[in-house]
Design a protein around this nucleic acid. Structure first.
Lengths: 221, 221
DNA sequence: GACAGGTTGATACTGAGTACGATAACAGCG
DNA sequence: CGCTGTTATCGTACTCAGTATCAACCTGTC
């Protein structure tokens, strides 16, 4: 592959130098030097030094938004789950590169902030989509729907990150299976509360069977 | 008050300059000049230019941790809710200052990242506390408890932020009342799943009465 | 007054990010 | 082939945040 692009060479040079001396101890000039280009060229390929580590957030975000746009009515949570799966798969495909980035973000506070900020962008996309499920009627329920949209978006991103981090740490070999169960957990938390979604019956500890059955009958009447 | 501290004068100078020219267009040198001190003194009072805006995150975090430490067994969620209330009250007490900071964080990406990172620290404190409710038994349930701790911590922080932002935007005059209902919402989402808490029966749309009753019978058997 | 400790401020340095202008590589086109 | 407009690259110079250092300056105390 003699036609590796300049951005590729810079990325490789950056990661190797970060592994050798650490992020802070590596200057952009050194990265450019190892890549065999000038310092100016680095900043043309990547807007900041941090950006060399987080290259394609925008692309992933665009794919997620496209998946959400294509949601079938009545299949909203499915759309959210599958959109989140796109993000997960993206990182799984990166493999070693994702792990190298994880090592860096673990140890360098500035990079950790950057990554968290990126996650917030995902969350906002999900929140906005989830919010659009319900058209606001009166202000009181609108407030409630706003909050629930934020909560569900946060839950989806949290569950995704939870599984992803376990895979990045090497704690699990079956991230996608864990993703499914984690998302099922999230769906169960929220599912029955969706409009037209059905009902939830909460049975406290020591629940009485007859009273429980009566409650279910009433709800479904 | 002739004995305003140097840090106070710097903070006031910084906010007035930020309001006049914006954050990026204001240099640390200009802040120091308006405060009547040297540039070195600024960095002795605040480690970074951003830190002049987020002064006492550590103090709030410490109060939250103290509140969680003092939790009565069996009153775990109460402890979490009241600890989160400490954070809310802190911002409410700041009043205009909190709103000024909010205006800045809305418009300056670097500051938004900073604030989000700060919120993540709260979330981690909550997560760690919530996780300690359950002692890990077998790996399978430990995983489940890990995820649920993250989800609940994220929900608490999200609900807190939701209410706080409404107040910062001037959308509500009764933030603490909204905080109570928001936290009740969060508690309801998670309540029934707590160990010894009972069961939740989820009935999908178009649920069949007989099958629902059968499910309840099985769960309570 | 002399001495010790802490605070300030000036200076100088590194490194990220921006702006700009010069030059080289590379089209297309006669 | 030669000319020309375009684009990539590079070097230079600049601003500013953040760090390190040292001299000057105020405290107080004996």
């Amino acid at each position: 592959m003699p036609d590796r692009t300049v951005a590729d060479r810079l990325r490789e040079a950056a990661f190797s130098l970060f592994a050798e001396r650490g992020y802070d101890a590596t200057s952009v000039e050194q990265i450019a030097e190892r890549a065999g280009v000038g310092r100016s060229t680095f900043f043309r390929a990547y807007p900041t030094k941090e950006a060399v580590i987080f290259p394609d957030h925008d692309a992933v975000l665009a794919r997620i938004e496209a998946r959400l746009e294509a949601a079938t009515p009545g299949q909203h949570f499915l759309a959210v789950r599958e959109a989140a799966r796109l993000a997960l798969r993206h990182y799984l495909d990166e493999d070693d590169h994702a792990r190298a980035r994880y090592r860096l973000t673990r140890n360098v506070p500035a990079l950790r902030e950057r990554e968290i900020a990126g996650m917030q962008r995902y969350q906002e996309v999900f929140r906005s989509f989830i919010r659009s499920w319900d058209v606001g009627s009166d202000p009181a329920t609108a407030r409630r729907v706003d909050l629930r949209a934020e909560l569900l978006a946060a839950a989806v991103v949290t569950a995704h990150n939870h599984v992803l981090r376990r895979w990045l740490r090497g704690t699990t070999d079956a991230p996608e299976a864990e993703f499914d169960t984690a998302m099922a957990e999230v769906e169960q938390l929220f599912a029955a509360r969706e409009p037209g979604g059905g009902h939830v019956v909460v049975l406290g500890p020591g629940a009485d069977l007859d009273r429980a059955l009566a409650a279910v009958r009433e709800v479904l009447s």
